[in-house]
Amino acid sequence: MSVLKITDVSKIFAGPTVAVDNFSLEVANGELVCLLGPSGSGKSTLLRMVGGFERPTSGQMTIDGDDITQLPPERRPTGMVFQSHALWTHMNVFKNLAFGLKLRGLPQDQIRHKVEDVLELVGLAGYGARGVNQLSGGQQQRVALARSLVLEPKILLLDEPFASLDQHLRERLREEVRDIQQRLKITTLFVTHGQDEALAMADRIVVMRDGRTEQIDRPDVVYRDPQTPFVAGFIGTMNLIDGEVTKGRFTRAGLALDIPIPDGPATLAIRPEALDLEASGTGVAQVHRVTDYGTHGLVDLDLGDGTRLKAMVAHPDLFSAGQKVNLKPQAMAAYRDNARVYRS
Protein backbone atom coordinates (compact mmCIF):
# COMPACT_ATOMS: atom_id res chain seq x y z
CA MET A 1 0.00 0.00 0.00
CA SER A 2 1.37 3.43 -0.92
CA VAL A 3 -0.45 6.50 0.19
CA LEU A 4 0.87 9.98 -0.42
CA LYS A 5 -0.27 12.58 2.05
CA ILE A 6 0.46 16.28 1.59
CA THR A 7 -0.50 18.46 4.54
CA ASP A 8 -0.57 22.27 4.53
CA VAL A 9 2.40 22.54 2.20
CA SER A 10 3.52 25.99 1.08
CA LYS A 11 6.38 27.12 -1.09
CA ILE A 12 7.51 30.72 -1.12
CA PHE A 13 10.30 31.67 -3.52
CA ALA A 14 12.48 34.75 -3.11
CA GLY A 15 10.63 37.80 -4.16
CA PRO A 16 8.50 36.76 -2.35
CA THR A 17 6.45 34.66 -4.77
CA VAL A 18 3.96 32.25 -3.25
CA ALA A 19 4.09 29.28 -5.63
CA VAL A 20 2.11 26.87 -3.46
CA ASP A 21 -0.17 28.14 -0.73
CA ASN A 22 -1.23 25.86 2.11
CA PHE A 23 -1.93 22.87 -0.12
CA SER A 24 -3.29 19.58 1.22
CA LEU A 25 -4.04 16.37 -0.64
CA GLU A 26 -4.20 12.66 0.04
CA VAL A 27 -3.57 10.29 -2.85
CA ALA A 28 -4.92 6.79 -2.19
CA ASN A 29 -3.16 3.56 -2.99
CA GLY A 30 -3.11 2.91 -6.74
CA GLU A 31 -4.89 6.16 -7.49
CA LEU A 32 -3.95 8.48 -10.36
CA VAL A 33 -4.45 12.10 -9.40
CA CYS A 34 -4.00 14.88 -11.94
CA LEU A 35 -2.80 18.32 -10.93
CA LEU A 36 -4.43 20.56 -13.49
CA GLY A 37 -4.07 24.28 -13.84
CA PRO A 38 -2.76 27.07 -16.03
CA SER A 39 0.93 28.03 -16.16
CA GLY A 40 2.04 29.50 -12.85
CA SER A 41 -0.62 27.72 -10.83
CA GLY A 42 2.04 25.90 -8.77
CA LYS A 43 1.33 22.37 -9.97
CA SER A 44 4.88 21.64 -11.16
CA THR A 45 6.37 23.18 -8.01
CA LEU A 46 4.16 20.91 -5.94
CA LEU A 47 5.25 17.84 -7.93
CA ARG A 48 8.90 18.85 -7.59
CA MET A 49 8.41 19.15 -3.84
CA VAL A 50 7.03 15.61 -3.72
CA GLY A 51 10.02 14.47 -5.79
CA GLY A 52 12.44 16.27 -3.46
CA PHE A 53 13.73 18.80 -5.99
CA GLU A 54 12.23 21.69 -4.05
CA ARG A 55 11.99 22.01 -0.29
CA PRO A 56 8.63 23.20 1.07
CA THR A 57 8.68 26.41 3.06
CA SER A 58 6.19 24.83 5.45
CA GLY A 59 4.00 21.76 5.71
CA GLN A 60 4.59 18.04 5.68
CA MET A 61 4.61 15.23 3.13
CA THR A 62 4.42 11.54 3.98
CA ILE A 63 4.46 8.33 1.99
CA ASP A 64 2.88 5.42 3.83
CA GLY A 65 3.18 7.45 6.98
CA ASP A 66 6.93 8.07 6.63
CA ASP A 67 7.86 11.74 6.65
CA ILE A 68 9.73 12.55 3.43
CA THR A 69 9.55 16.34 3.71
CA GLN A 70 13.29 16.87 4.25
CA LEU A 71 14.63 13.85 2.35
CA PRO A 72 16.79 14.46 -0.74
CA PRO A 73 15.45 13.05 -4.05
CA GLU A 74 17.83 10.08 -4.03
CA ARG A 75 16.39 8.84 -0.75
CA ARG A 76 12.72 9.15 -1.66
CA PRO A 77 10.64 6.18 -2.85
CA THR A 78 9.41 8.20 -5.82
CA GLY A 79 10.09 8.01 -9.55
CA MET A 80 9.74 11.03 -11.77
CA VAL A 81 9.15 11.26 -15.50
CA PHE A 82 10.22 14.65 -16.82
CA GLN A 83 8.67 16.72 -19.56
CA SER A 84 11.90 16.75 -21.58
CA HIS A 85 12.42 12.99 -21.03
CA ALA A 86 15.81 13.85 -19.43
CA LEU A 87 17.45 10.75 -20.84
CA TRP A 88 21.22 10.49 -20.60
CA THR A 89 22.37 10.66 -24.18
CA HIS A 90 25.82 9.23 -23.45
CA MET A 91 24.18 5.96 -22.39
CA ASN A 92 22.14 3.55 -24.49
CA VAL A 93 18.61 2.52 -23.52
CA PHE A 94 19.78 -0.42 -21.40
CA LYS A 95 22.29 1.70 -19.49
CA ASN A 96 19.69 4.42 -18.89
CA LEU A 97 17.43 1.86 -17.28
CA ALA A 98 20.17 -0.06 -15.48
CA PHE A 99 21.80 3.01 -13.92
CA GLY A 100 19.48 3.22 -10.91
CA LEU A 101 19.62 -0.54 -10.37
CA LYS A 102 23.44 -0.50 -10.45
CA LEU A 103 23.46 2.26 -7.83
CA ARG A 104 21.39 -0.06 -5.66
CA GLY A 105 24.05 -2.76 -6.02
CA LEU A 106 21.89 -5.38 -7.75
CA PRO A 107 23.70 -8.27 -9.44
CA GLN A 108 24.15 -8.03 -13.22
CA ASP A 109 21.78 -10.86 -14.15
CA GLN A 110 19.03 -9.41 -11.98
CA ILE A 111 19.57 -5.98 -13.57
CA ARG A 112 19.33 -7.48 -17.04
CA HIS A 113 16.20 -9.38 -16.11
CA LYS A 114 14.47 -6.31 -14.66
CA VAL A 115 15.43 -4.07 -17.56
CA GLU A 116 14.18 -6.58 -20.12
CA ASP A 117 10.90 -6.95 -18.22
CA VAL A 118 10.26 -3.23 -18.05
CA LEU A 119 11.20 -2.74 -21.72
CA GLU A 120 8.63 -5.40 -22.54
CA LEU A 121 6.09 -3.57 -20.36
CA VAL A 122 6.50 -0.30 -22.26
CA GLY A 123 6.59 -2.02 -25.65
CA LEU A 124 10.30 -1.54 -26.34
CA ALA A 125 11.56 -5.12 -26.09
CA GLY A 126 14.83 -5.46 -27.98
CA TYR A 127 15.63 -1.75 -27.88
CA GLY A 128 18.23 -2.03 -25.12
CA ALA A 129 21.28 -1.56 -27.34
CA ARG A 130 19.86 1.48 -29.12
CA GLY A 131 21.21 4.95 -28.43
CA VAL A 132 18.54 7.23 -27.02
CA ASN A 133 19.10 9.69 -29.86
CA GLN A 134 18.09 6.95 -32.30
CA LEU A 135 14.60 6.82 -30.78
CA SER A 136 11.50 8.81 -31.68
CA GLY A 137 9.96 11.24 -29.19
CA GLY A 138 7.34 8.70 -28.16
CA GLN A 139 9.94 5.96 -27.69
CA GLN A 140 12.11 8.32 -25.64
CA GLN A 141 9.15 9.08 -23.39
CA ARG A 142 8.55 5.34 -22.96
CA VAL A 143 12.20 4.87 -21.98
CA ALA A 144 11.83 7.71 -19.46
CA LEU A 145 8.75 5.98 -18.02
CA ALA A 146 10.55 2.63 -17.97
CA ARG A 147 13.52 4.21 -16.18
CA SER A 148 11.21 5.24 -13.36
CA LEU A 149 9.18 2.01 -13.31
CA VAL A 150 12.19 -0.30 -13.24
CA LEU A 151 13.00 0.95 -9.74
CA GLU A 152 9.48 0.06 -8.57
CA PRO A 153 8.81 3.41 -6.88
CA LYS A 154 5.98 3.74 -4.38
CA ILE A 155 4.83 6.95 -6.02
CA LEU A 156 5.13 7.73 -9.73
CA LEU A 157 5.41 11.41 -10.59
CA LEU A 158 4.65 12.54 -14.13
CA ASP A 159 5.55 16.13 -15.01
CA GLU A 160 3.69 16.98 -18.22
CA PRO A 161 5.23 13.89 -19.86
CA PHE A 162 3.41 14.28 -23.15
CA ALA A 163 3.85 18.02 -23.61
CA SER A 164 6.58 17.66 -26.23
CA LEU A 165 4.71 15.09 -28.31
CA ASP A 166 2.27 15.57 -31.17
CA GLN A 167 -1.46 15.22 -30.58
CA HIS A 168 -1.81 11.73 -32.07
CA LEU A 169 1.12 10.31 -30.13
CA ARG A 170 -0.03 12.07 -26.98
CA GLU A 171 -3.43 10.39 -27.12
CA ARG A 172 -1.91 6.97 -27.73
CA LEU A 173 0.70 7.32 -24.99
CA ARG A 174 -1.74 8.54 -22.38
CA GLU A 175 -3.83 5.42 -22.92
CA GLU A 176 -0.72 3.24 -22.64
CA VAL A 177 0.46 5.02 -19.50
CA ARG A 178 -2.99 4.69 -17.94
CA ASP A 179 -3.03 0.95 -18.78
CA ILE A 180 0.42 0.44 -17.26
CA GLN A 181 -0.51 2.44 -14.17
CA GLN A 182 -3.64 0.38 -13.64
CA ARG A 183 -1.85 -2.89 -14.29
CA LEU A 184 0.89 -2.06 -11.78
CA LYS A 185 -1.59 -0.32 -9.41
CA ILE A 186 1.03 2.34 -8.78
CA THR A 187 0.03 5.50 -6.95
CA THR A 188 0.55 8.34 -9.41
CA LEU A 189 0.62 12.10 -9.32
CA PHE A 190 0.38 13.61 -12.78
CA VAL A 191 0.87 17.25 -13.70
CA THR A 192 -0.70 18.63 -16.84
CA HIS A 193 -2.21 21.79 -18.19
CA GLY A 194 -4.19 19.79 -20.74
CA GLN A 195 -7.73 19.24 -19.56
CA ASP A 196 -8.25 16.43 -22.09
CA GLU A 197 -5.38 14.49 -20.55
CA ALA A 198 -6.70 15.06 -17.07
CA LEU A 199 -10.26 14.08 -17.97
CA ALA A 200 -9.09 10.98 -19.85
CA MET A 201 -6.59 9.64 -17.33
CA ALA A 202 -7.32 10.76 -13.80
CA ASP A 203 -9.21 9.07 -11.01
CA ARG A 204 -9.40 12.51 -9.44
CA ILE A 205 -8.48 15.96 -10.67
CA VAL A 206 -7.04 18.73 -8.54
CA VAL A 207 -7.70 22.05 -10.24
CA MET A 208 -5.10 24.56 -9.08
CA ARG A 209 -4.92 28.31 -9.37
CA ASP A 210 -2.32 30.66 -7.87
CA GLY A 211 -0.92 27.86 -5.71
CA ARG A 212 -4.26 27.00 -4.19
CA THR A 213 -6.80 24.25 -4.71
CA GLU A 214 -9.92 25.33 -6.57
CA GLN A 215 -11.58 21.92 -6.62
CA ILE A 216 -10.71 18.25 -6.04
CA ASP A 217 -13.12 15.77 -7.57
CA ARG A 218 -13.65 12.98 -10.06
CA PRO A 219 -13.25 14.16 -13.68
CA ASP A 220 -16.97 13.89 -14.43
CA VAL A 221 -17.85 15.89 -11.32
CA VAL A 222 -15.28 18.58 -12.10
CA TYR A 223 -16.77 18.88 -15.58
CA ARG A 224 -20.44 18.76 -14.68
CA ASP A 225 -20.36 20.37 -11.29
CA PRO A 226 -17.62 23.03 -11.15
CA GLN A 227 -17.49 24.69 -7.76
CA THR A 228 -15.97 28.01 -8.86
CA PRO A 229 -16.25 30.16 -11.98
CA PHE A 230 -12.53 29.56 -12.59
CA VAL A 231 -13.04 25.77 -12.74
CA ALA A 232 -16.16 26.27 -14.83
CA GLY A 233 -14.21 28.33 -17.33
CA PHE A 234 -11.02 26.25 -17.25
CA ILE A 235 -12.51 22.79 -17.78
CA GLY A 236 -14.15 22.36 -21.16
CA THR A 237 -15.96 25.15 -22.96
CA MET A 238 -18.27 27.26 -20.86
CA ASN A 239 -20.40 30.32 -21.51
CA LEU A 240 -19.73 32.67 -18.60
CA ILE A 241 -22.09 35.64 -18.55
CA ASP A 242 -21.72 38.41 -15.99
CA GLY A 243 -25.03 40.03 -15.09
CA GLU A 244 -27.30 41.32 -12.37
CA VAL A 245 -29.93 39.46 -10.37
CA THR A 246 -33.00 41.48 -9.33
CA LYS A 247 -35.96 39.90 -7.62
CA GLY A 248 -34.86 36.41 -8.65
CA ARG A 249 -34.30 37.31 -12.31
CA PHE A 250 -30.86 37.38 -13.98
CA THR A 251 -30.55 39.93 -16.77
CA ARG A 252 -27.88 40.82 -19.29
CA ALA A 253 -28.37 42.56 -22.65
CA GLY A 254 -31.92 41.36 -23.17
CA LEU A 255 -31.25 37.90 -21.78
CA ALA A 256 -33.52 37.25 -18.75
CA LEU A 257 -33.54 34.00 -16.77
CA ASP A 258 -35.09 33.03 -13.44
CA ILE A 259 -32.43 32.40 -10.84
CA PRO A 260 -33.70 32.29 -7.27
CA ILE A 261 -30.82 33.93 -5.46
CA PRO A 262 -30.60 37.22 -3.54
CA ASP A 263 -30.21 40.42 -5.55
CA GLY A 264 -26.76 41.40 -6.69
CA PRO A 265 -24.15 40.68 -9.35
CA ALA A 266 -23.72 37.08 -10.51
CA THR A 267 -21.91 35.06 -13.14
CA LEU A 268 -24.04 32.65 -15.09
CA ALA A 269 -22.42 29.48 -16.47
CA ILE A 270 -23.98 27.45 -19.27
CA ARG A 271 -22.26 24.65 -21.21
CA PRO A 272 -22.68 24.91 -25.01
CA GLU A 273 -24.27 21.45 -25.06
CA ALA A 274 -26.83 22.63 -22.46
CA LEU A 275 -27.86 25.70 -24.42
CA ASP A 276 -30.79 25.07 -26.75
CA LEU A 277 -31.63 27.60 -29.44
CA GLU A 278 -35.04 28.60 -30.72
CA ALA A 279 -35.31 30.60 -33.92
CA SER A 280 -37.34 33.76 -33.36
CA GLY A 281 -37.59 37.09 -35.14
CA THR A 282 -37.48 38.82 -31.75
CA GLY A 283 -34.73 36.62 -30.27
CA VAL A 284 -32.24 38.03 -27.71
CA ALA A 285 -29.19 36.79 -29.60
CA GLN A 286 -27.99 36.86 -33.16
CA VAL A 287 -26.16 34.01 -34.87
CA HIS A 288 -22.63 35.11 -35.77
CA ARG A 289 -21.24 31.92 -37.29
CA VAL A 290 -22.24 28.28 -37.71
CA THR A 291 -19.57 25.59 -37.83
CA ASP A 292 -20.52 22.09 -38.94
CA TYR A 293 -18.28 19.39 -37.41
CA GLY A 294 -20.19 16.54 -39.01
CA THR A 295 -21.27 14.90 -35.78
CA HIS A 296 -22.63 18.17 -34.40
CA GLY A 297 -22.59 21.87 -35.02
CA LEU A 298 -21.28 24.83 -33.05
CA VAL A 299 -23.16 28.10 -33.22
CA ASP A 300 -21.44 31.35 -32.20
CA LEU A 301 -23.96 33.87 -30.90
CA ASP A 302 -23.82 37.51 -29.90
CA LEU A 303 -26.00 39.06 -27.24
CA GLY A 304 -27.16 42.63 -27.78
CA ASP A 305 -24.02 44.07 -26.12
CA GLY A 306 -21.69 41.86 -28.13
CA THR A 307 -21.17 39.17 -25.49
CA ARG A 308 -20.13 36.07 -27.43
CA LEU A 309 -21.75 32.71 -26.52
CA LYS A 310 -21.46 29.21 -27.96
CA ALA A 311 -24.18 26.62 -28.41
CA MET A 312 -23.80 23.02 -29.54
CA VAL A 313 -26.58 21.91 -31.87
CA ALA A 314 -27.47 18.59 -33.46
CA HIS A 315 -28.64 20.16 -36.74
CA PRO A 316 -26.43 23.10 -37.68
CA ASP A 317 -28.18 23.42 -41.03
CA LEU A 318 -31.20 24.89 -39.18
CA PHE A 319 -29.18 28.02 -38.32
CA SER A 320 -27.46 30.69 -40.37
CA ALA A 321 -25.49 33.87 -39.72
CA GLY A 322 -27.64 36.91 -38.88
CA GLN A 323 -30.54 34.81 -37.66
CA LYS A 324 -32.23 35.90 -34.38
CA VAL A 325 -32.61 33.20 -31.72
CA ASN A 326 -33.88 32.81 -28.18
CA LEU A 327 -31.79 30.96 -25.61
CA LYS A 328 -33.21 28.00 -23.65
CA PRO A 329 -30.64 26.73 -21.14
CA GLN A 330 -31.27 23.13 -20.04
CA ALA A 331 -28.80 23.36 -17.18
CA MET A 332 -26.96 26.25 -15.67
CA ALA A 333 -25.14 27.44 -12.58
CA ALA A 334 -24.64 30.83 -11.02
CA TYR A 335 -21.57 32.05 -9.13
CA ARG A 336 -21.07 34.91 -6.74
CA ASP A 337 -17.95 35.78 -4.73
CA ASN A 338 -16.04 32.86 -6.32
CA ALA A 339 -18.58 30.31 -5.05
CA ARG A 340 -21.49 28.55 -6.66
CA VAL A 341 -24.82 29.89 -5.39
CA TYR A 342 -27.23 28.20 -7.77
CA ARG A 343 -27.45 25.13 -9.97
CA SER A 344 -30.28 23.80 -12.08
Binding site: G51, F53, P72, E74, M80, A86, F99, G100, R147
Partner: peptide
Amino acid sequence: VANQAIEAARDVGANRFQ
Protein backbone atom coordinates in the same frame (compact mmCIF):
# COMPACT_ATOMS: atom_id res chain seq x y z
CA VAL B 1 24.17 19.60 -19.20
CA ALA B 2 20.43 19.97 -18.65
CA ASN B 3 19.18 20.41 -15.11
CA GLN B 4 16.59 17.72 -15.70
CA ALA B 5 19.28 15.19 -16.67
CA ILE B 6 20.87 15.80 -13.29
CA GLU B 7 17.56 15.70 -11.47
CA ALA B 8 16.70 12.44 -13.23
CA ALA B 9 19.96 10.95 -11.95
CA ARG B 10 19.22 12.06 -8.40
CA ASP B 11 15.71 10.69 -8.82
CA VAL B 12 17.03 7.20 -9.54
CA GLY B 13 19.25 7.34 -6.46
CA ALA B 14 22.54 8.94 -7.45
CA ASN B 15 24.28 11.05 -4.82
CA ARG B 16 26.14 14.23 -5.76
CA PHE B 17 29.42 12.48 -6.52
CA GLN B 18 27.69 9.78 -8.61
